[in-house]
Design a protein around this nucleic acid. Structure first.
Lengths: 367, 367
DNA sequence: CTGAAAGCGCTTACAG
DNA sequence: CTGAAAGCGCTTACAG
C-alpha cells in the first residue's frame, strides 16, 4: 500500500521566516519605509522610485512574505471568515460552500472551514472567537443560540444559511421552495396528471414557524388547484444519505417502502409521484423499475434538489433545483455588506427561489 | 425574493475584545499569572487554587477569549493547515476534504480552505505563506512547482492528494486502482462475460510516469486473462461534469456517443461495459435504456468512483469505490507526522486501494 | 507562587 | 521623503 522511496533527499533548510526588518537591513532602509512601499503607500508617502526599487528588490531576493498574523494583531482585522458546517458529505452543502468561498476570495478574505457536531460545537465557537474571525457563516442544524450570543457580545457578523428554521438573529438565507413546487405541479397537470402522490420526509422536523415545508406546499398547491389528495397518498421516507463510511449509509429500504406503499395503493396507484428530495425520487424510480413499471410512460416522477445524481439517472430526473450555490454567494455577500456597513442583528429572511428542471422522468399521463 | 423585516433591533455594542490585561486587572493579578492558569500551566507554576479561581472567574465574567493570532505571532505556530483545491464542486473532492478536515480538527488544527485556478494560484500561494500556515494539502491539477519551491524555502510541509501524476516533492497520496480493476474484471468473468468493452477518458492526460491509468489497467487485466479487446472496444468520453451553473455542465452527449459506438459495434455489441468513471457508466445506462436494452439482463455495466449517484441509479450501479475519504485522512495524518518528525521532501507515494462494490447493474452474461 | 520586562512581526502616527 | 518609537495582545524566561 505504502511504497516508500529511498530517503536520500536533503532535508529542508530551516532558516526561519524572513522579516520586514531583514528586508530593511538588506535595503539599507528603515522598517517603516519597507512596510510603506510593500503596502502600496509609496505614492502617499512620496517615497522616491529608486527607494521603492531597493525595497522591492530586497524583498524579492529574500523571498519576503509579510506575516499576516502579526499584521492582524496590529490592525485588529484578521481578514478571515469562518464557515461552520455540520455534514460536509452532503452535496448541496458543498455547492453552498463553493458559492460562499468564491465570493469571499474575490473580496480578499480567506476562509476557515470548521465542522461541528453537537459535541464539538462549543469548541468550534471558541476557536472562531480566538481566531478573531471577522464574520461567520453557519450551516448547521444545531442550536445556534450559544454562538449567536457570543458573536453578539464580540460584535461579529453572522449569516445563517438554509436551516429550514427561522433564526432569532441576523440574516438567514434559504430557499423559497414555493416556486419550484408550483412549477412542478403545473408541469404535471399540464401533462394530464390528476392522481399525484407525494413522498415526504419521515424525519421529525423542527418547528418551522410559518415557513411551509415541501409537503405543506404540495398540499397547498393541490388544494388551490382543486385536486384531491386521497388518504395514503402521502408516504414518508427517512433514508440516511448524508455520510459515508457509516453503516446506515446507502440503505434505500425506507424509500423503497414508501414508494411501494404508493404503488400498491388500494385506490389505485398514482400516475405521478412528487418527492421532497431527489434521493426519494431516485429510489422511487428503482421501485418502479423492479416492478416493471416504466418511467415516464406509465408513471411520472419528480424530485427536489437537483443533485448530480438527477441528470445521471435513467431516465434523467425532472426535479426542482434549489439554488445552493447562489445561497452561499448571497449569504457571503450579505456578510461582506455587514462588515462594511455594520451588522444588524434583527432577524431577516432572504429566500432564493427554486425552479423546475424538466428532464425525462415525466411524461403524459397514461391513457 | 429578499424579504426584509423592520429594522428596529439594537445595533451591536462594540466595546472591543477583552484582553488578558483586562482579566488580570479585574482579578487583581499580573498578566503572566493569567496566561499561566489559562494555558494550563497552573500546576507547573505552582499557582495556588484560590488564585486560579480568581483568574478563571474574571475570564468567565468578562467573556475572555485569548487572541490566537497574537499567540501565533509570539509562538511562531499558527495551528492552521491549508487545503488548496481547484474544483470543489466535484463530489470526490469533498469527501477527501472531509477526511482531511476531521483528522486535522482532531489534532487541534484549524483548516483554511482555498480554491485556486491557474489565474489565482500565485495569489493563493502568497496567502498561504503570509498566513504562516504550518502545512499544506494540495488537491489541484495545476503545475505545483512554484508552490513546492516556496514551501521548501519556508520550510512548510506539503502533502499532495490524488493528482494522477507523480509529483517531484514530498508525499503524494493517491488511489491504487489496480485492485478495483482486477476485482471488476474477475467479477464480470465469473458472470460469464468475455466480450468486455471499456469507456475511457477522452481528456488529454498528463504524463503519468509509470502510474497505469484505468484504461491501461483494463488492458493489462484483460491480456493477463487471455481475453481479447477487439478494435473499437475502447470508446472515449469527455463530459464536463464538475462545475455547476456553467453552460457545459450536464451535457451527456459525449458519453452517450461513446456508449452508442459500443452498442453499435460491427463485431457485435459487448456483453459488459466497464467505465473509467461512474458518470460514463451512468450515461451508458441511459443509452441502453433508450434503446430498450435491459441492464443487467442484456448487458452489464461497471463504473468507477462510487459517487452517490451510483447507489441511487436504476438499477444501482456496480462500481469500483475509490477511498476518497481515507485519502484525505491519510494525507492529513502524514502531514501531522511531518509536523512532528520533520518534513521529508523526497517524493513518496502512498496508494490506497479501490475495491469493487457489487450492486445490480451486473448480471450473468445473456445466453 | 507572582510580577516586571522583553520580544514576536507588524503598522501607524509623529518628527524631522 | 525617511526614521525612531510606541503599541497590538500575547508568551516566556527571569527575578524575587
Amino acid at each position: 500500500m505504502a511504497k516508500r522511496q529511498e530517503d536520500d533527499a536533503p532535508r529542508l533548510s530551516r532558516s526561519g521566516p524572513v522579516t520586514a526588518a531583514m528586508v530593511a537591513a538588506k535595503a539599507g532602509l528603515s522598517r517603516a519605509t519597507v512596510t510603506h512601499v510593500l503596502n502600496g503607500r509609496a505614492a502617499e508617502m512620496q517615497i522616491r522610485p529608486e527607494t521603492q526599487q531597493r525595497v522591492l528588490q530586497a524583498a524579492r531576493e529574500l523571498g519576503y512574505r509579510a506575516n499576516a498574523l502579526a499584521r492582524s494583531v496590529r490592525t485588529g482585522k484578521s481578514g478571515m471568515i469562518g464557515y461552520i458546517v455540520d455534514d460536509v458529505h452532503y452535496e448541496p452543502y458543498w455547492h453552498t460552500l463553493v458559492g460562499a468561498m468564491a465570493e469571499a476570495e474575490q473580496e480578499g478574505f480567506t476562509m476557515k472551514v470548521l465542522t461541528a457536531t453537537a459535541e464539538t460545537f462549543a469548541e468550534r465557537i471558541k476557536q472562531c472567537m480566538e481566531l478573531r474571525l471577522e464574520g461567520l457563516l453557519l450551516r448547521v442544524v444545531l442550536d445556534k443560540r450559544p454562538l449567536y450570543d457570543e458573536a453578539n457580545r464580540a460584535g461579529i457578523a453572522v449569516v445563517t444559511v438554509d436551516d429550514w428554521v427561522v433564526q432569532p438573529y441576523g440574516i438567514r438565507v434559504s430557499a423559497d421552495d414555493s416556486k419550484g413546487c408550483c412549477e412542478a405541479l403545473e408541469h404535471l397537470i399540464e401533462l394530464g396528471h390528476r392522481k399525484i402522490a407525494f413522498i415526504s420526509s419521515g424525519f421529525e422536523s423542527q418547528p418551522t414557524e410559518g415557513i411551509l415545508d415541501r409537503e405543506g406546499l404540495f398540499l397547498r398547491e393541490m388544494e388551490s388547484r382543486g385536486l384531491e389528495v386521497p388518504e395514503g397518498y402521502i408516504a414518508r421516507e427517512r433514508m440516511y444519505v448524508y455520510g459515508r463510511g457509516k453503516q446506515e449509509v446507502h440503505d434505500a429500504s425506507s424509500g423503497l417502502a414508501a414508494a411501494e406503499a404508493l404503488l400498491n395503493h388500494p385506490a389505485g396507484r398514482p400516475t405521478a409521484i412528487f418527492c421532497w428530495r431527489d434521493e426519494a425520487a431516485l429510489v422511487a424510480m428503482q421501485a418502479c423499475q423492479r416492478r416493471g413499471i416504466r418511467v415516464p410512460e406509465e408513471i411520472s416522477i419528480v424530485g427536489f434538489s437537483d443533485l448530480s445524481a438527477a441528470w445521471l439517472s435513467s431516465p434523467p430526473l425532472t426535479t426542482c433545483a434549489s439554488p445552493w450555490e447562489e445561497m452561499g454567494q448571497t449569504a457571503m455577500r450579505e456578510l461582506m455588506r455587514s462588515l462594511k456597513e455594520g451588522f444588524n442583528p434583527t432577524p431577516q429572511e432572504i429566500l432564493l427561489p427554486s425552479s423546475l428542471i424538466v428532464r425525462e422522468s415525466t411524461g403524459r399521463v397514461p391513457a
